[in-house]
Simulated assay, not measured.
Amino acid sequence: MFYNLKESLEKPALYTKSKEAFWDDEYISKQMLKAHLDPDFSGASRKFSFIEQSVSWIKEKIPAQTYPKLLDIGCGPGIYAEKFALENYQVTGVDFSKRSIDYAKKSAQQHGLANIYYYQDYLAMDLKQSFDLATLIYCDYGALSTKDRQTLLDNIYQHLKPGGKLLLDVFSQKFYQQFQEEQKWENCENGGFWRPDEYIALYGNYKYSNDVTLEQTTIVSDTEITPYYVWNTCFTKDALIKEMQEAGFEFCEIFSDVTGRAYNEENKTMAIIVEKNLGGQVYEKVGYLVNKCRGY
C-alpha cells in the first residue's frame, strides 16, 4: 500500500491511461452529469451562454441546409446535440458514458426530437452511415495520445461524406505556457465528486516537454489507491493543421474558439474546420503501405 501511494506521487509516463473508465463509473458519472447540466459551471461542459453563441455561429458557418447530417462526437448528455436539432440538423450523438447517453435519449424523447444516440467508444465507433458534418467540442481531441488521435481522425474520416467537414477545438500554446505545476491534497470527510464516502484526494499538475499537460487525481482510502489522468496536448496553429492534413483532411479555417472569434495566438484555445479530402487520404494510405513494405 505504501509503495502504491509513493508511486502515485511521482510523475507518470507520458499518456499513461487510467485503469478505471471514470466517465462510466456508476457514482462518478452521476457527478459528471450534474456538472454537465449546471448552466453556470464550465468544468464539464462550457456555460450555456457560450454554447448558445457556439451553435449560433456553427449554423451560419456550416448550415444544416448544406450539411444536414451531423455527428456529435463525445456528445455527453446531448446539450449541443439538442440545440443542433432545433437548428434543423439531423443529429447523431456518440459518447462512452452510459449515464449521459441514457439521459440524452430520454431528453430527446421528452422534447420530441429525432436525435439518435449511441453508447460507443468513439475510437472504435462503427455507425454504418456517413455524415456531412462532425463536431468534437470541448478540447476532447487533445486529451488523447498521439496514436489515439490518429485512430480517431481516421475513424471520423471514414464516417464523413466526400466534402464533409470536421469542427474541433484544442488547447493552445498559451494554455501550456500558463499551466502551473503543483501538488496538493484534500481531505473529503463526507465524500465528494469522486467517492460517496470519506477519501483523500491527491492532486498533481505536471508539464511535459512535448507541449503536454497532465491533471492527475489520486483517490486514497482504507481500501484503495486509484489514480485518474486527464491529459491535454497543446497545439500551435501549424502543428494542428499539419496533424489534420496528415490524416487526409484539407484545411479550411482556424479560429480562437467554437464561437468563431478571430484567431489570436494569445487565446488559450483554438478551433479548426477541415474538410474530407479523398485524394489526400488515399495518398496517405498508399504511402503508409509502401513504407511498410519497405520496412520503414
Rank of each mutant, 00 (worst) to 15 (best):
M1R: 04
N4A: 15
L5Y: 03
K6S: 12
K6C: 08
A13H: 09
L14W: 05
Y15D: 09
T16I: 07
W23G: 01
D25W: 01
D25C: 10
Y27S: 11
K30N: 13
M32H: 09
L33T: 07
K34Y: 02
L37N: 09
D40P: 01
F41D: 14
G43N: 13
A44Y: 01
S45F: 15
R46V: 02
R46I: 02
K47M: 12
F48H: 13
F50C: 03
E52D: 14
S54I: 00
V55G: 04
I58Y: 00
I58A: 03
K59F: 00
K59S: 13
P63T: 01
P63V: 01
T66C: 11
T66E: 15
L70Q: 03
G74K: 02
P77N: 12
Y80V: 07
Y80T: 04
E82H: 13
E82P: 02
E82F: 03
K83N: 06
K83C: 03
N88A: 12
V94G: 04
F96Q: 09
F96M: 12
S97Y: 03
S97K: 06
S100C: 14
D102Y: 02
A104S: 08
K105G: 00
A108Y: 07
A108N: 11
Q110P: 10
Y117P: 07
Y118P: 02
Y118A: 11
Y119S: 12
A124P: 05
D126E: 15
K128N: 15
F131E: 01
L136A: 07
L136K: 00
D140R: 04
D140G: 08
D140Q: 11
A143T: 13
A143E: 09
A143R: 01
L144Q: 06
L144G: 00
S145P: 01
K147F: 12
Q150D: 13
D154I: 14
N155F: 03
L160G: 12
P162V: 07
G164M: 08
K165G: 03
L167T: 06
D169E: 13
V170T: 05
K174Q: 15
F175N: 11
F175V: 00
Y176P: 03
Q178M: 09
E182K: 14
K184D: 15
E189K: 14
G192W: 05
W194Q: 12
R195L: 13
R195A: 10
P196M: 10
D197T: 11
L202F: 13
N205I: 01
Y206T: 07
N210P: 02
V212D: 06
T217H: 08
T217W: 00
T218I: 14
T218N: 10
T223G: 06
T226K: 13
P227I: 04
Y228W: 09
C234P: 01
F235G: 05
F235L: 10
E243S: 12
E243L: 07
E250T: 10
T259N: 05
G260I: 09
Y263Q: 07
N267Y: 14
M270Y: 05
V274N: 03
V274Y: 00
E275A: 10
E275Q: 14
N277K: 02
N277A: 10
G280Q: 10
Q281G: 06
E284S: 14
K285A: 08
V286I: 15
G287E: 07
R294K: 15
G295C: 12
G295M: 06
